[in-house]
């Protein structure tokens, strides 16, 4: 396999966990390159990531999870990577699932693979309100894309270059990409697959996803899904015909 793989790790104040995450990625995917997007951390995240052998892109100030992720996509496009994997730097995503995540990409069965914490064994126990939110948006996304979505909030994903190209444009929601991105991908005629992955509960207050309040999240997501449905469909970058 000659595809160049890049693992994007958007990180904000994860000095405690970033070394073990990079180590895990290296042992699972020794040929992949790793870039840590340091989203204005005030701790030693960038220094530790560099010491562990990852490349580091340091943002001057905190611009949020989605925008940090998009910086990773821009980096991938700039450096000509064929496949991109994204995972969090807080240790929530288990690197042992990386090969499972990449399998449908290698076999050509999917353009985007979303790791679902609810398809297999999981150490993740979401709160009641979060479970309701996930269920609601999972159901909405499932109805729109006519495909079962069990984990619409998962940030553990793998994708091919045309998807990265799409995410580099203004259509990507830079504040908090979520179920609306799955709908966007469906409209762009990309094939989406979910695979079971291992996820853990992030350390309290450490996750990049914790910046938003639950009520705002629910409001934002409904609004974002509604406008995604109303907007002009993005130009397709489909790699294989969708059945």
């Amino acid at each position: 396999m000659n595809d160049r793989i890049l693992v994007i790790i958007p990180s904000f104040n994860v000095a405690k966990t970033i070394a073990s995450v990079i180590e895990g990625v290296k042992s699972e995917l020794p040929d992949a390159d790793i870039v840590v997007i340091n989203d204005g951390s005030s701790d030693d995240t960038a220094e530790i990531a560099l010491r562990e052998g990852a490349d580091v892109v340091s943002l001057y100030h905190n611009i949020g999870y989605g925008a940090a992720l998009q910086t990773g996509y821009l980096y991938a496009r700039l450096n000509g990577y064929d496949i991109v994997v994204q995972m969090d730097g807080d240790g929530q995503h288990d690197p042992s699932s990386l090969k499972t995540l990449l399998r449908p990409i290698f076999s050509g069965d999917a353009d985007v693979v979303v790791g679902s914490r609810f398809l297999g064994e999981t150490g993740y126990k979401p709160s009641f309100s979060r479970r309701i939110g996930m269920g609601l948006f999972g159901l909405t996304a499932s109805l729109v894309i006519r495909q079962k979505v069990t984990d619409p909030t998962s940030g553990f994903q793998a994708m091919r270059r045309p998807v990265v190209e799409l995410f580099c444009t203004d259509v990507f929601p830079v504040d908090y990409p979520d179920a609306d991105v799955l709908i966007l991908l469906h409209f762009a005629k990309f094939r989406i697959r979910e695979v079971p992955v291992k996820m853990y509960m992030p350390e309290k207050g450490k996750s990049m996803h914790r910046g938003h309040k639950n009520i705002y999240y629910i409001f934002k997501m409904f609004l974002s899904i509604a406008v995604t449905l109303l907007r002009q469909k993005p130009a397709g970058g489909r790699l294989c015909p969708r059945k």
């Binding site: 490349d55 892109v57 340091s58 611009i63 910086t71 980096y75």
Partner: peptide, 20 residues
Amino acid sequence: TRQINRMTQRQALLTNDLYR
């Protein structure tokens, strides 16, 4: 906000390229 985010991203990528 969009412009500042874009500028921050570009600046970070250019700095990364320079250091590399």
